[in-house]
Amino acid sequence: MIPVEPDKYREWDAAYVLGSLVPAERAAYERHLAGCTQCRTAVAELAGLPGLLAEVAPADALASVPREGAEVPQNLLTGLAGKIRRRRFRTRVGMAALAVGISTASVGVTLAVTPPPSAVVVQTQAAAVTLDFASVVAGPINAVGTLTSQPWGTRLDWTCTYSLASGPTSRHYASPSGLSKASGLPEPSGLPDAVAPVYGYTLVVIDRRGAEVQVASWTAGPGTRVTPTATTSIVAADIARVEIRSAGGEILLAAEP
């Protein structure tokens, strides 16, 4: 059914819901509603609002002033970057335990070295360079990854696959991570069967001048696949070599971009 006077009532929904229509108009509007789906929908959409408005005490509502001058400071984000940077130095060791912690810390540098905050967003993604890791010590780990240039440095993504303990195993793959004993074998004898052995690993970036920096650490065990991400302020062109090491410091795999 087509409403008789659609335009007349189109904007009455709020006044009706808020109880501000005078009695005669309210009655007329209710008669109209009976035959107008559109207006019924409009009323239904607003029906919850009086209940919400009731959560603000009338005195508070009337005392409130329009929001002006109370805008968030422009330097909040820049300040945030500084805060992250300072925290990075305080907790570098602790955060190194998590690859995500590393990304977190590195962004502090990102934001801090690009003072106009808007510059951060305008990052152009350079093509990724493949990292083909070759075994330095024979073992059950395969890895492949990429280096991606960023305006603030380099991002590293890689995937490590650990075969189930098969083939020759090296004691180097079983460096202590707190769980395994000094025996260092992939299946430490002292552990219950239910607990899979877990080993610690690190990713180390070596620049053209020979300086090295650990950019990530993680744990993994037989039969697992991990895909960590790390960032560094070293630019991609300066990265000579990337190594995966055991927690004990043994070089297991290496790649040269």
């Binding site: 709020a14 006044a15 808020l18 109880g19 501000s20 229509l21 005078v22 108009e25 009086p50 919400l52 408005l53 959560e55 603000v56 009338p58 508070d60 509502a61 009337l62 409130s64 002033v65 329009p66 929001r67």
Partner: peptide, 27 residues
């Protein structure tokens, strides 16, 4: 909710305060 009220334009905020919080009719 109070913050949303404060974010309304002056005209919108005004009628809403009169209507809901002061219980006035449109007349």
């Amino acid at each position: 909710i109070a913050d949303a009220l404060a974010g309304l334009s002056k005209e919108h905020r005004e009628v809403l305060l009169h209507s809901y919080y002061q219980r006035e009719s449109t007349a």
